[in-house]
Design a protein around this nucleic acid. Structure first.
Lengths: 203, 203
DNA sequence: ATATTAAACTACCATTCGGTAGACAATCAA
DNA sequence: TTGATTGTCTACCGAATGGTAGTTTAATAT
């Protein structure tokens, strides 16, 4: 039984990382123990510390990866040839329906943490993300006359609705059952569509 | 120096309770220690346990109080003589601008927890709350033809936007500064108003 | 072949946590 | 007055946590 192979090392590091992201998203930073993360992938806590140095480091790495992935998603949408309104809707639908569960959970947990600890440079990842999205909102024909604050508010309105709905999924399923939950999700997407295209003057 | 007086006992219990709500909202269940709560009001952990039995009990009591307060707020709005659309807007503005910070934080934390632990009977408090709000949405003239799923989706859209915006306040302040944040909040409220009154056929 | 580095392990440490046990003082009921 | 109850305390326990130290094994470089 080999106790260390170079081939598995990078793979193990990746598995630890993904398990960490999963647990941080599901339970939050404090409630997650590095021992649990390591055990979940069949390693020990000390192997995890060997790869990542400390729990804080590991978490920071998760946050950086998350920010990069969110930026990638925006870029992927922006590279598509769509009308501004459709582009905005495509982004929100991607956020709503795509594999963004863990990201949304972690972002919201960070928003909650910000009321207590200063939380240093982390939010500066967020500001670039939001800026590009505000531009996306302002590009919609009906929104050209909006001030920056108004565009930001409209974006946050949409983003908040989608994020909140996303993290409510397990609760809604438990409350309404599976079919009803799907119906509501369909109606929610329609709501989104209507809101975005409401003021657009089609040319 | 008296170590126990009946007069202070009930007051101490109340102070422990409020400090607990504050810390649970700000840090979450796991990251909050009963020792910290007790120390913050000048008592010991064991006094807290005397009053509340266990950390779980204390938290449950906070949740019950929170549910009662949310229901009260709905009732207070419902008792006002307002048009249905104005009533819905009044409720959302109360949620947005009122002293509901800790409540929103705790509710969202519970929504996040629901992805991991079963979280038993807690969500059944939520369902009554949401039901009364769905009725409020359906009472708006323009919404009479909505199915239950559609009304629920519209409510959740609004409630999500407001909740997310509410808990983002500290982050927004740090990101935008105080004046900009207030401008955005004003624009957000306008957004809310427009969304609610958009489809209303005024009679 | 040998030395070095990397990756995993066992063992341990200091701290913190929730909770229990028991003592002591203050209030109230008899 | 006396006995019981209540509120608070000090002291302690077992479990879990993040992290350190040191060891062993496999791969790599010279």
């Amino acid at each position: 039984m080999p106790r260390s192979t170079k081939a598995n090392a990078v793979r193990n590091r990746q598995r630890l990382f993904e398990e960490a992201r999963r647990q941080f998203a599901a339970r939050g930073f404090h409630a997650t123990s590095i021992g649990n993360i390591a055990a979940a992938v069949g390693l020990t806590k000390q192997s995890l510390l060997h790869h990542f140095g400390s729990k804080e480091n590991l978490f920071s790495e998760v946050l950086e990866d998350l920010a990069a992935n969110m930026a990638d998603r925006v870029l992927a949408i922006e590279s598509q040839d769509l009308d501004p309104a459709d582009r905005l809707e495509a982004f929100l639908l991607d956020t709503l329906l795509g594999d963004t569960n863990e990201q949304m959970q972690i972002v919201i947990r960070e928003l909650l943490e910000n009321s207590e600890r200063a939380s240093g440079a982390r939010q500066w990842h967020l500001i670039d993300y939001l800026s590009s999205l505000v531009s996306m909102v302002q590009a919609v024909p009906g929104n050209r006359d909006l001030t920056d604050s108004e565009a930001f508010a409209r974006l946050y309105f949409l983003l908040g609705a989608v994020s909140y709905f996303k993290i409510s999924q397990p609760t809604l399923q438990g409350m309404l059952g599976n079919e009803q939950k799907d119906k509501v999700q369909l109606a929610f997407a329609a709501e989104l569509h209507q809101f975005i295209h409401n003021n657009v003057i089609h040319t």
